[in-house]
Amino acid sequence: MGNHSMSDKNLLAGVRILDFSRYIAGPYCAALLGYLGADITRVEKPGGSEDRPVVPIGGDGGAVFAQSAGNKKSLTMDLGHASAPEIIRRLVVLADVVIVNHPPTGVRKLGLDYDTLKAIKPDIILTTQTAYGHQGPWKERGGFDGIGQVMSGAAYFSGSPDKPVKTAAPYVDFGTALYSAFGTLAALYQRRDTGRGQHVQASLLGTALSFFSPMLIEQKAIGANRVPSGNRSQTSSPSDIFVTSDGHILLHVVGNGIFKRLSAAVGREDWIDDPRLQSDEGRGGKRDEICNYLAQWCSKRDSNTVLEKMAAAGVPCGPVLDPQSALEHPQVEAMEFFRKISMSGISDGVAVADFPVSMSDADTGLRSGAPEKGEHTEAVLLEVGYSIDEISELRRAGAI
């Protein structure tokens, strides 16, 4: 970590990360650490890894790549080439963290398992993301975000009894990236005090189970055997998506105080003293009665009227927006959350979500755009001791 100090405004300055991962869970983990100032080298196939074109947007990479590729260098390498082990060895000697998201056998086959890396550099930190973890009968199987959603019970409970629903937002992937980055930061912090590295492991299924854990805890404890009810919450009410005269809004009420304010706002003061509705549990049990009334009330008003009425009453309420409307919403624009980065093939760049955490005394976020395939191969290899002639030979041999 060189002369790095945790008091620097560029928090992870001097931390070097090798990112061998693909798609979201691994690359976004690396991106999060990059937002904090780490030096990240993305290692990909000579023609570009398979995650580059996902959700095409017309440039040298798709939207998934654009979101996680900022602040990174690109080194292309054929991991199956005879020269790859030596290149990896030289890279690891100067690295602090290696990120890989292959199943355990694949990681070992590539020579990126913890034992192999530790033999090269004893204090290395290896961060891996798998579909199912490192134990159990499915540990060698691959998987994507949706597998976590359906195996955690979340997709079952998000739909109707005969139609499970997977959410379009890949929250399992991004959640796994968050857990991985959190664990990696903790490992770096511990290494600063102990001088020891370690293996940080995260999994899609583990993330999904933890995100859906309240329902799983309830099921384990009392065998609730709840039947899905779509957007309508069962543990409080009203909490549902309602049709207005010109669109849809979501109302979410939890707690007696908010429920009393809602009751007054919609002309149902009688609900306030109704003995059946004195707790979230009681209101959840009467959710159909409450939500059916709210459905009628909302249907007679446009979305803005409902939103302003609820805002005045202090009741959480939001509009259901399509992607374009989300981008154009005044609150989204005021947050200045999207930042334009450069990307080869797109002349005016592409706007991506920046680091979603604001820090009052640190320099964080996007500092550079998405790299072209192999843009930094020569510079990185020179840094680890290869000569220009050796790099040319590696290129001629198809190793890079």
Rank of each mutant, 00 (worst) to 15 (best):
A31Q: 15
G345W: 04
A224H: 01
H252V: 13
N101R: 04
V227R: 11
V43A: 12
N101Y: 01
G58D: 07
P214R: 01
K109M: 11
K139G: 03
R192I: 14
R22T: 15
D51C: 04
L32Q: 13
I400N: 03
G175T: 01
T76Y: 10
R287F: 06
S83Y: 08
A265L: 08
G398T: 08
G37S: 09
G398D: 03
V350M: 11
D302N: 15
S229K: 15
G314T: 11
P137K: 08
A353D: 11
P356G: 04
C317M: 02
R89K: 02
D302P: 14
T235D: 05
G146M: 13
K340C: 09
R367M: 08
F144C: 04
M151P: 00
F174H: 12
M343K: 00
H376Q: 09
Y386E: 02
D354G: 11
D361G: 12
R192N: 15
S158C: 09
A264R: 10
L79G: 10
D8P: 10
L18A: 07
A313P: 08
D115G: 14
H252R: 10
M151V: 13
Y23D: 07
E393F: 14
V100A: 09
A119V: 10
Y171M: 07
I120L: 12
K309G: 12
G206Q: 09
Y28E: 04
V352R: 03
I87H: 13
P330H: 11
G148W: 04
Y114W: 04
G314W: 07
V253E: 11
K121H: 05
S368W: 06
F355A: 06
R232T: 07
